[in-house]
Simulated scan of single mutants.
Amino acid sequence: MAGLHLIKTYSSDSDEDKYDEEKEDDDKIVNKLALPASILSLKGDTCHEEVIDNPSDHDGRIRSFKHERGNWATLVYIDYTISDCLRTWMKSVLNELPIQGDIISSLHISLSRTLVLKFHWIESFVEGLKLLCRGFHQFVVQLTDVKVYCNEERTRTFLGIYCQDEDGTLKRLTEAIDCLLAEYQLPSFYKDISYHISFFWCLGDKQIYLKKILPSLTCSLNKFLAENMEDTYVHVKEIQCKIGNKCYSFELK
C-alpha cells in the first residue's frame, strides 16, 4: 500500500488530498494493532527472563542443575518427624565438630536423586507414584550409626544417621521407583545406596575432617538410642514427593 501511495503523489491535487486522508486512516489502524512494548521485548516479564542463581541467597549453596522454565525440581522421600530429645542430641554434636556448619531443620530419607521433572509429566508421574505405593505395606526402619556423605558436585558435605530395615522393603521400594523414573528417562537412585537421615551440612568437601570423628559420634548416638528406645525406630506409613513447592503424600497399605 505504501508503494501505491508514492505513485499517487505524482497525480492531481485532489489525489494528494485523498492520499492524506487514506494515510491518516492507515495510521489509526496501525496504532490500534500495535503490540505492547512489554510483549515485543519481554522486558520485565519474569516468566521469560532467565533466572540467575545467587549462592549468597542460599547460604552459599550451589544449584546442581540450571533453573529453566517448565522444569521442576523433584524428590521422592520418607518424611521424618524428629523428637525433641534427638534434636537436642544433634545440636550437641556441633560442639564436637572440627568444622563449621548447620543443623538441618527438615529431615527425611531420600528414595531418589533430586530430579528434573517436566511440567507436562507431573500429573502422570504423581499418579504412577500413587499406584506404586499402594503395592507396599507399611514398614519399620532402624537408626544405627553416623556416616559422612558428600554430594556429587563436591560442594556440600553432610553427616547422616544410617537407616536399615530387616525385610528389604527400602530396596524393593527404591527399585520400583527407579522403574517409574525410567519411563520418563530420569536417572535412577545411586548404585551403592546408603539410606540415611542427613542432620548436618557444611560447604565444600570436608569428608576427610569428619571421618576422623565418626567413631565417637556413633558411640554417642548409640548411647543416646539405648536410653531413648522410642527414637531408634521409624514407622514408615507413607511416602512423600516434593515437586517444586508442592508436596504429595502417598499412603502405604
Rank of each mutant, 00 (worst) to 15 (best):
A2Q: 06
A2M: 04
A2Y: 00
G3A: 07
L4C: 09
I7Q: 09
Y10I: 05
S11Q: 05
S12G: 10
D13V: 13
D13I: 10
Y19M: 13
D20R: 14
E22S: 13
E22D: 13
K23H: 01
E24I: 10
D27I: 14
P36K: 09
L40V: 15
S41F: 10
L42V: 12
G44D: 13
D45L: 14
D45T: 14
T46R: 14
I52V: 15
S56H: 07
H58F: 11
H58Y: 11
D59S: 15
R63Q: 12
K66W: 00
E68M: 08
W72I: 13
A73L: 09
V76N: 07
I78M: 08
T81N: 12
S83N: 03
S83M: 03
T88K: 10
M90I: 12
L94F: 01
E96P: 02
I99T: 04
L107C: 10
H108R: 05
I109W: 03
T114W: 05
V116G: 11
K118N: 08
K118E: 07
H120V: 09
I122W: 01
G128S: 12
L132T: 12
G135E: 14
Q138N: 13
V140Y: 10
V140P: 07
V141D: 08
V141P: 08
Q142S: 13
C150F: 01
T157K: 02
F158Y: 08
L159N: 05
G160E: 00
I161E: 00
Q164L: 13
L170S: 01
A176L: 00
I177G: 01
C179A: 14
F189S: 12
K191E: 12
I197P: 05
S198P: 13
W201S: 12
C202Y: 02
K206C: 10
K212W: 00
L214S: 02
P215F: 00
L217F: 00
C219L: 11
K223F: 00
A226Y: 08
M229D: 10
E230I: 05
T232L: 12
Y233A: 02
V234C: 06
H235C: 11
E238K: 14
I239S: 01
I239E: 02
G244E: 06
E251L: 10
E251D: 09
L252T: 04
